[in-house]
């Protein structure tokens, strides 16, 4: 318990947060890694997911691939890529993107797939093109679930990005592993607490966004 108090004191000291290797810089790096990984994953997964959800083609394989990729241990991926790519950002980024893809993919195809068939049929019957059906009907109506997939991806990546430091990158994992190696438990704890608070904050923000979206959709329908 004493170490916990020391950790909190450490976090309340302004110097902890300043400097190139301070907690502030690490936090920023952590967010950058998360943003980059999720953006790259979305670039890959969203088009595929929307296509699968809209057409229904390849749904079976998509579900299967999602399941298999989820079973892959991220630490294994990071270390494996690091052996080939060397220390740095490539290895964790590859692993984090792979981690984020299944959630975004699943959110996209189930979001679009969740729209009632009669609604979609009615839209086509009124003369909407395939693109218009997708963008004006399926995506807006499936948005809460699509955002839900992104939310899960962000959550997983933010939590796992700590492992980036294991192969020599920065982020909040850096002070954490430093503390682990030097038996500096207050530092270790302080970094852990920051990651936990960051993850929970993001989760709450996303939950609120999703709720507002749901409500807005219900209001218009």
């Amino acid at each position: 318990m004493n170490q916990l108090i020391e950790a909190v004191e450490l976090l309340l000291t302004p110097e902890t947060w300043t400097g190139a290797t301070g907690m502030g810089a690490r936090l920023l790096q952590h967010l950058q890694y998360t943003g980059l990984a999720v953006a790259l994953a979305a670039l890959i997964a969203l088009p595929i997911g929307l296509a699968v959800g809209h057409s229904g083609v390849g749904r079976g394989p998509a579900v299967m691939i999602t399941g298999v990729v989820r079973a892959l241990p991220t630490l294994g991926l990071i270390t494996l890529v690091a052996l080939f790519a060397g220390l740095g950002l490539t290895a964790p980024m590859v692993a984090l993107v792979i981690l984020a893809v299944p959630s975004i993919l699943a959110g996209a195809y189930s979001g679009v797939g969740s729209v009632d068939a009669p609604v979609v049929d009615a839209a086509s019957a009124q003369g909407m093109s395939t693109w218009q059906v997708l963008w004006k009907v399926e995506v807006p109506l499936g948005l809460p679930i699509i955002i839900g997939g992104l939310r899960l991806a962000v959550l997983q990546v933010v939590a796992t990005a700590t492992l980036a430091a294991y192969v020599g990158s920065g982020g909040l994992g850096a002070p954490l592993f430093l503390g682990l190696r030097t038996y500096d438990y207050p530092l270790l704890l302080a970094a852990s607490l920051v990651v936990i608070v960051l993850a929970i904050t993001l989760e709450v923000v996303f939950a609120l966004v999703q709720r507002v979206l749901r409500r807005a959709l219900r209001g218009t329908s």
């Binding site: 939590a159 970094a191 852990s192 929970i200």
Partner: peptide
């Protein structure tokens, strides 16, 4: 919300608790 807890930090904080 517990799922938002990063695993590695949790592995570290739990022993203290």
């Amino acid at each position: 919300l517990l799922y938002a807890m990063p695993s590695l930090p949790l592995f570290i904080v739990l022993p203290i608790i």
